[in-house]
């Protein structure tokens, strides 16, 4: 092959228009011993390509990459586990609160009753009610068997005023 041929092939090569056969001949030329000094600069390019082609993966490469992937998977698994644990912990806590304080349903009961409508309008009345209630309590605590009519009447009387 003449230097003109090589020059033409090189031009085509750098244009990316060479066929596989032409590239092979180029490679052959540059791997040969009588490379024209003006083309020396291109020699490493083709030699490098050849040496790259020959390079093969080391046998341990596969196992190394596999262990790497596994380690990453394990890390991901652990993150997922931690996340699940968090969600579970919060769920357990909420369930715990619900179980420990099962009073939620009664909330509506106490709201449903409008206690304010049964409240005495004056503080004197309220005091009289309270006193009567406490007197009744005291007499019952003392073991009095008869219903303390006097106190009960007081409670009823003032209650009926605003009923």
């Amino acid at each position: 092959m003449t230097t003109q041929d090589i020059q033409k092939l090189l031009d085509k090569y750098f244009e990316g228009e060479t066929s596989l056969e032409e590239e092979a001949s180029l490679k052959r030329y540059f791997q040969g011993k009588d490379v024209d000094p003006s083309f020396r600069a291109f020699q490493p390019l083709f030699q490098f390509l050849e040496s790259e082609r020959e390079a093969s993966l080391s046998p341990s490469f596969e196992t190394r990459i596999l262990t790497q992937i596994q380690a990453e998977n394990r890390l991901r698994m652990r993150r997922i586990t931690i996340y699940i644990a968090r969600v579970a912990a919060i769920a357990v806590m909420i369930i715990g609160i619900v179980v420990l304080f099962p009073k939620q349903p009664h909330m509506n009961d106490s709201i449903a009753i409008n206690w304010a409508q049964y409240e005495p309008q004056t503080d004197e009345e309220a005091m009289a009610e309270t006193t009567a209630a406490l007197q009744l309590l005291a007499s019952k605590l003392n073991g009095s068997a008869r219903t303390a009519t006097k106190e009960l009447d007081q409670i009823k009387r003032s209650a009926s005023v605003f009923k």
Partner: peptide, 24 residues
């Protein structure tokens, strides 16, 4: 939500005229 016994009991009779109710 803490409600006393009387609320629980009385919710049943809230409109019952037979009861005299006092609240302070």
């Amino acid at each position: 939500a803490q409600s006393d016994a009387i609320s629980k009991y009385f919710s049943k009779y809230v409109d019952d005229e037979r009861f005299t109710v006092v609240y302070i």
